[in-house]
Design a protein around this nucleic acid. Structure first.
Lengths: 119, 119
DNA sequence: ATGGTATATGATCAAAATTGAATATAATCA
DNA sequence: TGATTATATTCAATTTTGATCATATACCAT
C-alpha cells in the first residue's frame, strides 16, 4: 500500500474500468467479467493486483468473491477520492460501463441470493 | 493526455520524485539529476515520458531546458491537484528530496543567470 | 459422492518498459 | 573555430507486464 504501487496499479485500462465499476457497487468476478468483457482469469489477475496494492478488498460469500473499494486507501491517499468521484465519475468511457452494469442487473439480477454488498 | 496514460506515467518511483520536485519549482535536467541522483539519460527519458503524458512541459532557456508542471492537466484531471498538494506534499520521502533541493540551491545557486522560472 | 459453477493460479509467450553506455545535437564560451 | 556543457536519442540487454490456456481449488446442489 505505497504510493507508487497504487499509481502503477491504477495505470491500466482494464483495472481502471474495474475500479470505476466498484466505485458504484461491490461486484463479484463473474459480474465484472461480463461487463468489461474480459476473460475470467484476466479479470481475476487484475483484481489480485488491485488488491495487492490495497485499492480494493475481497470478501467471499458462498461460491462468489465480492470485491469493493478499500476505504482505508482513500483515507491514506486522498487523490483517490478525487480520482473516483470526479475524474472517473465524469469520464464518458467509464460512464458507459456503468450503463452496461445497469443493463446487466436488469437482465441477470444478483449473482447471490444474498443482499447486495453495495454498502 | 489520457487518464490511463497519465496514471501510468505517475506510477514510477523516479518520475514521482521528479513531479514532486517540480511541484515546488521549475527545474532543469541537470538540477533534477543532481537531486534525485539518477543518470542524465535516465532523467531525460523520464522527463520525456512525463511530458508525453501531458503532466509537465518543457521550455528551453539558453543551453538549459526547464521543466514544470503543466497547469492544463490539473484542470483536466482534478485528482492531480490532490495528489500534488496533499499526497506528495505530505509524503516524507518526497519532503526529503525537497530538503535536498534547498541545500542544492544554497550551494549551487541557479543554473542560468536568468531569473528563476518558478512562477 | 458427483457434477457444476466460481475463482485463483501456474506456465508460457509476446509486448512494453527500464536502464546503461555511447553517440548526436544544440548552445555557449574562449 | 574548437572546446565545453546541457540535453536528447539510439542501441542492446534485461526486466516487467499482460494475455491466454490449462489446471487446481472451493463451494454448492442433487
Amino acid at each position: 500500500m505505497n504510493l507508487t504501487r497504487v499509481l502503477k496499479a491504477l495505470g491500466d485500462e482494464t483495472r481502471l474500468s474495474i475500479v470505476s465499476l466498484l466505485r458504484v457497487e461491490n461486484l463479484c468476478v463473474c459480474e465484472i467479467e461480463a461487463i468489461i468483457q474480459s476473460s475470467q482469469s484476466n479479470v481475476s489477475r487484475h483484481l489480485a493486483k488491485l488488491r495487492d496494492a490495497g485499492i480494493i478488498y475481497s470478501e467471499k460469500k458462498a461460491q462468489w468473491v465480492y470485491y469493493g473499494i478499500n476505504k482505508d486507501i482513500i483515507k491514506k491517499y486522498s487523490f483517490i477520492k478525487t480520482l473516483l468521484e470526479e475524474d472517473l465519475a465524469n469520464h464518458p468511457q467509464y460512464q458507459h460501463d456503468i450503463e452496461k452494469l445497469k443493463i446487466y442487473r436488469e437482465q441477470n439480477g444478483e449473482c447471490g441470493v444474498l443482499e447486495n454488498t453495495g454498502a
